[in-house]
Amino acid sequence: MNAQQQWTAYTTILVKEVLRFSRIWVQTIIPPVITTALYFVIFGNLIGSQISDMGGHSYINFITPGLIMMTVITNSYANVVSSFYGSKFQGNIAEMLVSPTPNWIILAGFISGGVARGLAVGLAVTLVSLFFSSLNVQHIFVTFTIVLLTSMLFSLAGLINAVYAKSFDDITIVPTFVLTPLTYLGGIFYSIAMLPPFWQNASLLNPVLYMVNGFRYGILGTSDMSIWVSYGVIVAFILLLGGFSLHLLNKGIGTRS
């Protein structure tokens, strides 16, 4: 395939993915918006009003970047894991596998679909957050690149989950038992400076911490760690998971018998 044909194949997958989650917007866009609005009401307004400033910001402003990032992470992951596994389950992944579309284009198409949903839901949640908090973005480039890279990273993780999944149970186990604990313990609701030294060090093993803090730095200008460390960790994980995903597709693991 020449470059133009590859572009056509890529946009076909991307448009198909965007149409897929747009068609079922009641299931894909609305629930995270409602859930996050509840977080703002309960943790931000009701409980947050009783909590003193954190890192020089009101509690509701402090948690807003983390809540936006949480929805981006879960929706990017959910989009790719459900779409790719659904394609395997129905067999229509074969439509791409029999075609000359290179595996890296298939990978890019699904990841872009996950990023599209992650950013769409992230934007919707950001608009909702404006009713509860005041956001003055400090570093636009950092804010955008961190959210984009994080969305890519968790889209890749969703694809790997889908490749190995053999049943619909398998695509809920990782989000429930791995992703949710990592995001809740990733510094969304607190600064790790509040933790005892042991748990501060233990938290550094959680990759979500670097994403939440990087995003918080972009919006509020404060973070528990250097922004360059955040970039480094996210890019390293993208390269690792991206390389592994491509290897899985090239070998046909989970897709070809």
């Binding site: 395939m1 056509t8 076909t12 068609r23 129905q90 439509e95 791409m96 075609s99 000359p100």
Partner: peptide
């Protein structure tokens, strides 16, 4: 076996397959 996305419109299934072969929409 039937192996298309049953929730997609008929024409989309065929047109998308063309896209995977690099055929403009």
């Amino acid at each position: 076996e039937f192996n298309f996305n049953i929730f997609e419109p008929v024409v989309e299934i065929v047109v998308n397959q063309g896209g995977y072969y690099g055929i403009p929409r």
